[in-house]
């Protein structure tokens, strides 16, 4: 079998006395959609933060594309090809939708500082190309008409899409989505599901934390369940639905 895109081994993180993530190991195969579920406070977002590098693990390794990344600086991890969205939307205030997406693109721009300052032809051309690429991403997500609106002034559902656009602009290999359907209505959630499937079809591997079970069951290839920082189950959606352990800690309470 091909080497997995993401391979996490023995990852642990404590905050004071609380073990938020305990010795978690798993793999995310290339081209798959993998979901991470679990009750509130199970450590899902912490696990995401450990992978994307905004917090450091106490122990364990994160192999991305065969390379250890857990010691890299946050911005380096991002430039390796991991992009993410947030449970609480984190757009750049005071900037337009287009500008937000163009910030996502920046790791793929090369004009040096002085040529950018002086607006030399080479950097101007690159700027133009970046703008076109950002626009085409917005078009592919059907929000091109919002390009010049201030990002944080948009409706909640639209802001989620903008955040997704910004992450896609990074041309990631792995996309981490932290509760992309949170706060969306049924129609928007279904739309988000289709969007995620389309993103996977374009060759991007998706790792998603989500509370909406119908969405998770529908789109995921594999599901991993976390409870009190520990992995308690992993498998295909149908197996997870039948897993007695999972039903006990999670699905039973949620009545799925």
């Amino acid at each position: 079998m091909a080497e997995p895109l993401l391979k996490v081994e023995g990852l642990s993180k404590s905050f004071g006395g609380l073990e938020a993530v305990k010795d978690v190991s798993f793999e995310v195969p290339r081209g798959s959609i993998k979901a991470l579920i679990g009750p509130n406070g199970a450590g899902k977002t912490t696990l995401f933060n450990l992978i994307s590098g905004n917090i450091r693990p106490d122990r364990g390794t994160v192999l991305f594309d065969g390379k250890e990344i857990q010691k890299l600086k946050t911005h380096r991890i991002a430039s390796c090809g991991i992009a993410r969205t947030f449970q609480h939307i984190q757009l750049f205030a005071g900037m337009t939708v287009l500008e937000n997406v163009m910030v996502g693109l920046h790791t793929h721009l090369h004009a040096g500082f002085f040529s950018a300052m002086m607006r030399l032809p080479s950097s101007r051309k690159e700027e133009k190309k970046a703008k076109e690429e950002a626009m085409s991403i917005l078009e592919s997500l059907d929000i091109a008409e919002l390009a010049y609106k201030e990002a944080t002034s948009l409706a909640y559902g639209q802001q989620r899409i903008v955040e997704l656009a910004r992450a896609l602009a990074q041309r990631p290999k792995l996309l981490l989505l932290d509760e992309p359907a949170a706060g969306l209505n049924i129609r928007e959630t279904a739309e988000m599901g289709r969007l995620i499937e389309r993103i996977r079809e374009s060759g991007i591997t998706v790792f998603i934390v989500e509370h909406d079970m119908s969405l998770v069951m529908k789109i995921s290839d594999e599901i991993m369940v976390l409870s009190y920082g520990e992995k308690i189950a992993e498998g295909r959606p149908l197996e997870i639905q039948k897993d007695p352990e999972v039903i006990k800690v999670y699905l039973g309470e949620e009545e799925v």
Binding site: S52, A83, R84, F86, F92, N100
Partner: peptide, 15 residues
Amino acid sequence: RACAANREAARLCGI
């Protein structure tokens, strides 16, 4: 500007 608006998100965009 991105850093000024949200440093953490900017880092995660590779800045």
